[in-house]
Amino acid sequence: MTYDASLWIIFILLGLCTLLPRGSFIVLGNRVTLPGALQRALRYAPAAALAAIVVPDVLLVGGELAPFNPKLAAAIAAVTATLLWRNPWLPFIAGMAALHAARLLAGV
């Protein structure tokens, strides 16, 4: 797949979508504060957003629900490795190993 110049516009806008939240209060100083309820609600945004990307990716194959597929096996292995060990490389090793083992078993 190749991308045209509009990719750079996406990068610049993404950069702003990162700089503005990060810079917000550091640049503004103590003059402004967020309402407490909004602050608490925003805490859930990263977890919800990560899950909204990961879960469909590992549950769907070709747009259809596939409760038994190699990606799901890999995800379970990665979650297990993250929960059990602190080694930062292990989830990747376990996940990729499970992905390929499940593919071999399924014959895909």
Binding site: C17, P21, R22, G23, S24, F25, G29, A45, P46
Partner: peptide, 26 residues
Amino acid sequence: LWLILTTALALNLRFVIFSAAIAPGF
């Protein structure tokens, strides 16, 4: 594009909270 940017903003919202917390240090 708007979906890409909305997703990025959602993933970055935690930084608003970090930024607010660490702001007095600046």
